[in-house]
Amino acid sequence: MQHRPLPNGFQIKTVTISRKADGYYVTLSLEDKSVSKFNSDVKSTSENTLGIDMGLKYFVVTSEGKSVPIPQYYRKSQQRLKTLQKRLSRKKKGSIRWLKAVKAVAKQHKKVADRRKDFHFKTANELLSKAEIIAHENLNIKGLAKTHLSKSINDAGWGQFLTILTVKAENAGQKTIAVNPKNTSQDCSNCGQKVPKELSQRIHSCPHCGTVIGRDLNAAINIKNRAVGHSVLKARGVLCNSRTAKREAHAIP
């Protein structure tokens, strides 16, 4: 059954047939030469760039202050999966009932994966509608997935999301920028001073310039600044020095 009609003007380039838990799928790769191509020369500026911080409390927090809740599709389906796997364990391996139970487990896993992928596509579309360039951290996702947070990280699907975001950006003539993730949560996005904090501390409160904002928002702004090539220390140095001078002036008897 055809999912939807082929759009006018598009040419079929490749055809892929894949077998999944609920049947066979035919995937077509189409080309339309009128679609804008990826412009690698586009420069990142404060006006055309949006920084995003990915996390486990919120899936994404943008440098504009918008947050996207994390759906946790796998965790929400764990009880259902546990029930199906328990039924599977009671069946004789190789029997018809065992094969049906295996298929039921596979279908549930596919359902979770499909919902997660749909969420990633919708989130990517929403972000790309907000800015020409999306900046994110260059995370070692495989390494992070080996920690005690592995289940939550795999459930979030950061790797798949970044792949989707990058491909959709290129297809739309936009782009993504991966920046160094070091201290994006620790550095103050207003004055650039390092403000050490534990992972449990969700508020960034800078003792140097008085900035008080959410930890994730602070990180998202830092990510945007790094993509733009904006040095907070240089840009805010005069402001910090002036405040210091005022404090010193008030202290003089």
Score class of each variant (00 low, 15 high):
residue 3 H to R: 13
residue 5 P to T: 01
residue 7 P to Y: 06
residue 15 V to P: 02
residue 16 T to N: 12
residue 16 T to F: 01
residue 23 G to L: 05
residue 24 Y to C: 05
residue 25 Y to W: 13
residue 28 L to D: 04
residue 33 K to Q: 13
residue 35 V to E: 11
residue 44 S to E: 06
residue 49 T to P: 12
residue 50 L to K: 12
residue 53 D to A: 01
residue 54 M to E: 11
residue 54 M to D: 08
residue 58 Y to E: 15
residue 65 G to K: 05
residue 66 K to L: 11
residue 71 P to T: 11
residue 80 R to A: 07
residue 82 K to W: 03
residue 86 K to F: 10
residue 91 K to D: 01
residue 92 K to I: 08
residue 96 I to Y: 12
residue 96 I to T: 14
residue 101 A to I: 12
residue 106 A to Q: 15
residue 106 A to W: 03
residue 107 K to G: 04
residue 108 Q to I: 04
residue 109 H to S: 02
residue 112 V to A: 07
residue 117 K to Q: 14
residue 118 D to K: 02
residue 118 D to N: 13
residue 120 H to F: 11
residue 127 L to T: 07
residue 129 S to T: 00
residue 130 K to F: 02
residue 130 K to D: 04
residue 141 I to Y: 04
residue 142 K to R: 13
residue 143 G to Q: 07
residue 160 Q to C: 10
residue 163 T to Q: 13
residue 172 A to Y: 03
residue 174 Q to K: 15
residue 177 I to Y: 05
residue 179 V to G: 07
residue 183 N to T: 10
residue 184 T to K: 02
residue 187 D to M: 14
residue 187 D to G: 01
residue 187 D to L: 11
residue 188 C to Y: 13
residue 193 Q to N: 14
residue 193 Q to F: 06
residue 194 K to T: 13
residue 207 P to H: 00
residue 207 P to W: 01
residue 209 C to D: 07
residue 211 T to C: 06
residue 222 N to S: 03
residue 226 R to S: 07
residue 226 R to Y: 09
residue 227 A to S: 13
residue 227 A to L: 01
residue 229 G to I: 07
residue 248 E to D: 15
residue 252 I to W: 10
